[in-house]
Simulated assay, not measured.
Amino acid sequence: MTITQLSYVLAVAEHQNFTKAAEKCFVTQPTLSMQIQKLEDQLDILIFDRSKKPIELTEVGKKIVSQAKNIVNESHRIQDIVDQQKGFIGGEFKLGIIPTVMPTLLPMFLKTFVKKYPKVKLKIEELTTEDIITKINDGHLDAAIAATPLENDSIKERVLYFEPFMAYIPQSHRLSTKKTITTDDLDIDDMLLLEDGHCFRDGVINLCRVFKDHNDDSFQLESGSIETLIKLSNEGLGMTLLPYLHTLDISEKTRNNLKPFSAPSPAREVSIIYHKSELKMQIIEALQDVISGIIRGAITFQNVQIISPIAK
């Protein structure tokens, strides 16, 4: 039994197709099939039910894949040990970032990080929290930046910063004359929200749910971007909540529409998250140091109340 054979098994389990798995592993399909066949013969079991389309794992195959993930992940630790011993911070690093963090945070830290750690080859993807968790568990992401806490036993979290919610209230709105607002002022029925799948949306709903029961069917206007929410609000279609960093680049014309919350301000916790196997920790720690150092000057709020990003 070899690490290579187990890697091939994981690829077929993921893609449910020998040809696609071979392409992802950069080998020919006959080579991949032969190695998996050798492993099955050695173990005297079938890992895959080849009669099914697409290919499915057998019951024992499911258990083997679960263990294979642990073995393959642990095998990567050897290179980590060597890199850390040499003080080397480099190589490919796959990072996921949620959509409501990506456009504001990435420009703030990327140039500094690349300059400080030129040997790290960052591959960055914008992904929802759900996709991030799946890819981390499947070994397709080394780490991610997301709203936390996630309450996921396979994921570890390191807090980067706390980002307050800010209310965006147009001049025609009932709350426009207030200098600050409280959570008691919020009415979910006139709140513009991001589309389902965004954890910031779930955070807003959780914030409002504490103070008012509601039916999800009451949401009439949802959008895939924060910029669109601002435009819809300017048209008098409701108010919205924004992450603090998104308000730093807002135009002077609309800045008067921003209202802070009374302390403690509701906020989201933003963390760098990674698998509990803790691979490539030297790069994760380097990212944490760079981002924390930069963000410290941008967000000075201390008295905050963390709102869960998990849909409830």
Rank of each mutant, 00 (worst) to 15 (best):
T2Q: 07
Q5T: 06
Y8S: 03
Y8N: 05
L10M: 12
Q16Y: 04
K20N: 07
A21P: 06
F26V: 09
T28K: 03
L32H: 00
M34F: 07
L43T: 06
I47G: 01
S51I: 10
S51P: 00
K53N: 15
P54R: 06
L57S: 05
K62Q: 14
S66F: 06
A68H: 04
Q79E: 11
Q79C: 06
D83K: 04
E92F: 11
F93I: 13
K94F: 13
T100E: 15
L105A: 11
P107N: 14
K115P: 04
K116W: 09
L122W: 09
L127C: 08
T128E: 10
T129E: 11
I132T: 08
L141S: 00
E151M: 12
I155P: 00
E157S: 11
E157D: 14
R158V: 13
Y161E: 07
S172A: 11
S176W: 11
K178D: 09
I181W: 02
T182I: 06
D185I: 10
L186C: 03
D187W: 02
D187Y: 02
M191D: 00
L192F: 08
L193N: 03
L193F: 04
L194I: 10
E195I: 10
G197V: 13
V204K: 04
V204P: 01
V210K: 12
H214T: 12
D217L: 14
D217M: 14
L221R: 09
E222L: 10
E227I: 13
K231I: 14
M239I: 15
E252Q: 14
E252W: 05
K253P: 02
N256V: 14
N257L: 12
P264Q: 05
R268T: 05
E269I: 03
V290E: 03
G293M: 04
N303Q: 07
I310A: 02
